[in-house]
């Protein structure tokens, strides 16, 4: 019985996919065009729609700044206790987006309790809001196998599906950007003490990177987890 219960709980996150058809096609698979940055601004769907749209527009402008350039500095601390248990001891991350760009707003949709605004740095040459891929209920391959190519670096961010869903997507994107920064430059500092039988110590994992061309590529969600695939230009540098 116990085994059956644990197998069921282990597999439910993949099996029970949410109603992905509710989302606009461009939210699940973002448009791509050379020389154009795209971003989605999110807001909770308030009773007054104007308020929601205004907030989503402001968020879209902020996300466009991040897409053009963002500097991430941060550190995570972990402690390893005798017996092998690793304990999280906190983290600090600072993210500084680049300069504001003049946005071009392409579409606004309300779904899943959110208002979503698609913005770009300029009007793309080829774009149709209705054209997109059919949402797949099985997890896409990038959820487990992170893509790789010579022109960019990729990372996947995840977050629990919160009641206010826009927070989940924002958190998943934030986690993905942090992982992008770590994948470009990670400073690992470790101090371990112990005997042959037991050891304990601390690990500090830090990063400091300026990312450019940070573009959300795809989104997918299961019943309980939101996943985001993002990409950045491979020519990231250390911040000044």
């Amino acid at each position: 019985m116990l085994i059956l219960t644990s197998m069921l709980t282990a597999s439910f996150i993949w099996v029970s996919a949410a109603k992905l058809a509710d989302y606009p096609p461009w939210f699940l698979k973002m448009p791509e065009e050379s020389g154009v940055h795209f971003a989605v601004g999110l807001s909770r769907a308030y009773a007054k729609r104007d308020s929601s749209v205004s907030q989503a527009v402001r968020d879209a402008m902020y996300q466009l700044r991040i897409a053009a350039e963002t500097t991430i500095k941060g550190e995570r601390l972990f402690q390893m206790l005798p017996g092998g248990r690793t304990v999280y001891q906190g983290e600090v991350f600072l993210e500084q987006p680049g300069k504001a760009a003049t946005p071009c707003f392409l579409d606004t949709v309300e779904a899943s309790g959110m208002v979503m605004v698609l913005a770009a740095t300029r009007r793309p040459d080829h774009y149709d809001a209705e054209v997109g891929t059919i949402p797949q209920h099985a997890p896409p391959s990038w959820v487990t196998d992170i893509p790789k190519d010579s022109n960019g670096v990729y990372a996947v961010g995840m977050a629990r599906a919160y009641y206010y869903e826009e927070n989940s997507w924002r958190e998943a994107e934030r986690q993905a950007r942090q992982e992008l920064a770590y994948s470009i430059a990670a400073r690992q500092r470790r101090l371990f003490k112990g005997t042959t039988e037991t050891s304990f110590g601390v690990t500090a994992s830090a990063t400091a990177v300026r990312l450019t061309g940070v573009q959300t590529m795809e989104r997918w969600r299961s019943e309980s987890v939101c996943f985001v695939l993002i990409r950045a230009d491979s020519g990231a540098t250390a911040p000044q």
């Binding site: 487990t144 992170i146 790789k148 990729y154 996947v156 994948s183 470009i184 430059a185």
Partner: peptide, 10 residues
């Protein structure tokens, strides 16, 4: 610093 340490699979 570790350069290029990426998650390949998860």
């Amino acid at each position: 610093v570790l350069h290029g340490s990426r998650i390949s699979k998860q």
